[in-house]
Design a protein around this nucleic acid. Structure first.
Lengths: 214, 214
DNA sequence: ACCCCGATGTTAGTTACTACCAATCTGGTA
DNA sequence: TACCAGATTGGTAGTAACTAACATCGGGGT
């Protein structure tokens, strides 16, 4: 059963990855992304540069790991197909953000949220990271269009879905920037909902401020 | 008068830049962006690699020169401020595209348009170029928000403007991709107008299909 | 005619990343 | 327990995108 290689291997692997990433983000934040070399990260994590490259194909990936994409695509497919695309995408984005940051009743950012914030700060302020982050949206856009499962024989429908997806993601990204500028004090899902409403009108999200709280 | 250094210098400079860029885009298209080195480009253009770097700070800039940004920002400011931001931005995007491709009555793509198409094809298919191109949108977004000249003391207004700008640019980018997939046979400004209408409703653009033709 | 500055070239160095091979360590199995 | 297979790690060498510092050359304006 090579499908499940003992799981212990996988756990150790995931653990070292987290370790390396934590050191990387810390060093990047302290001394700047460009001023920090991969060798520096390797030394801090106590391993050879080669090993770092084995876990993260590029230096940028040390910051960019994306757990959000799969979540969104999954939720899109789960939405009723009757609603307009923008609404479906918007709901999926808001829900996914709520799940990801999953914060209980207005307390401050948790530890994992602080890490997310640190990563986002880097992604926004560093050109190379910002560029690749936006390119990830490009991939996510395709995933969303696929998940919408619209009639692929009609090129016009596909086009509209692509436009909806890219516009929603752009609005979400702006919300993300805003959230980071506010140091995560507000609630991410609410900021996203506000952004979507600003772009597409109130009809874009089920209802602003709903969700697990309300 | 060092402000206007004889103009002849500037013209020669611009000319060599065009030469280098033409060779670069040709080589990139023929052999692939990643498979072509800057040294290859320099040899093709008949100069040393250093000179190439003097004219284009990075390899990516050989493809990415952006003449669009200034055009858009300028047209935004020229629009009546009474209209909603999305409409103002949408009109500016459509008008700028029409100016840029400036084609007379449905003939095929001109020579300069072929060049634009080649560059866009590279920007879309090559990851590094795609990423930096999207990052340029990020800069353009700021320029648009500034050009809108909204009340900067109210953070909410600024946020809405940012959302509007990023969403419009995303829709325009999708239109761009579509246009390239169609090998520029349709009219770029019309595709952009269609994308904006799909995202924000018919109210987004003054009227689809208007402009210098209609 | 002269001088000055901008454009070009050369060299040497840094850094991200890759290919290849060797060593080692782990986890399950006979 | 002893062992095998495969996963993980490490080292070396190489490529390619840049950067810095310095020399050179040629054209333009005074």
């Amino acid at each position: 059963m090579p499908d499940q290689p003992s799981k212990l291997r996988a756990r150790r692997r995931a653990e070292t990855q987290r370790t390396v990433q934590a050191h990387a983000v810390r060093l990047f934040t302290e001394h700047g992304y460009d001023a920090t070399t991969v060798v520096d990260v390797a030394e801090a994590a106590g391993m050879s540069p080669m090993t770092v490259y084995r876990h993260f194909p590029t230096k940028e990936d040390l910051v960019l790991v994306d757990e959000y994409g799969a979540l969104v695509a999954e939720r899109i497919a789960a939405q009723p197909a009757a609603q307009p695309p923008i609404r479906r995408i918007g709901n999926a984005l808001v829900d996914s953000a709520a799940t990801l940051t999953g914060r209980d009743r207005g307390q401050g950012p948790s530890a994992s949220e602080e890490f997310l914030l640190a990563r986002l700060r880097l992604m926004i302020s560093t050109q190379a990271l910002r560029a690749r982050h936006l390119d990830n949206h490009y991939v996510l856009q395709q995933a969303i269009v696929d998940a919408l499962g619209c009639d692929t024989t009609d090129p016009d429908t596909v086009f509209r879905a692509q436009v909806a997806a890219s516009a929603c993601l752009a609005a979400m990204h702006t919300a993300l920037v805003r959230w980071v500028e506010d140091d995560g004090r507000t609630e991410l899902s609410a900021v996203i909902a506000k952004a979507l409403a600003a772009a597409f009108g109130e009809a874009a999200v089920d209802s602003v401020g709903t969700g697990p709280y309300a």
